[in-house]
Design a protein around this nucleic acid. Sequence first.
DNA 1: CGCAGTGTTCGATGACCATCTTACAGTGCT
DNA 2: AGCACTGTAAGATGGTCATCGAACACTGCG
Lengths: 114, 114
Amino acid sequence: MSDQTEGASHRPAPVHTHPDDVPLLTALSALADPVRIQLIRDLASHPDWALSCSNFDVPVGRAAKSHHFSVLRDAGLVEQRDQGPKRLNRLRREEFDARFPGLLDLTLRADDTE
Amino acid sequence: MSDQTEGASHRPAPVHTHPDDVPLLTALSALADPVRIQLIRDLASHPDWALSCSNFDVPVGRAAKSHHFSVLRDAGLVEQRDQGPKRLNRLRREEFDARFPGLLDLTLRADDTE
DNA sequence: CGCAGTGTTCGATGACCATCTTACAGTGCT
DNA sequence: AGCACTGTAAGATGGTCATCGAACACTGCG
């Protein structure tokens, strides 16, 4: 019983938080970081599931990058899916926008790069 | 020369930043604080210029409160005006909303206290 | 003038957070 | 099995920031 649809995946699946369960303060704090803004913008400019974590071009090491993705997951901004050794990413556009209307658009459309 | 329109006001006028000159990151960071969110909500629930700094009911001392108002000024969220010994406040609704559409509404309408 | 009320500034303190290095765990390929 | 690649976890470090206490400045009033 309790069979997974997947085969033997001996890796802890990433923990997600749905945007509906995210407090406003958490969302704002998650977006109030230049690296995470960059990650989100990169993500937005590619198709869903197109990028694995190592594909993002931010000036921090792997560990910090992993930390940032954890923050983005907790804020309901990013969904992750394991495929082979890679962890593919998807921006939760609609779900997040339903919870915080306009916030994501703001982050993506702001003219300044900071 | 260099006469001010005002009479002899021997107090440094508060320094303001127009929302148009505020980077996204600054705006988000300013809003990513529970005390400042509370200040903004209190401000929104009263008429313009109705509240002086000491009228806000947040669980911090005067010094911290003064600091928070400084942050809000720098983020283009609040305008201040001296009247007698008091410093009256006004939420820059329209100007801020023109620069960051929806962000202020989000902060005011969020159902949770965070 | 002295005094109460209001707000800012300064220095110190403590907490939180972003980052790094290192070590570790899966995955798939040869 | 061994190796290269990918991502996470743990511990340490440095910087930023929220807060406080105390001192200071300005206002208006008695």
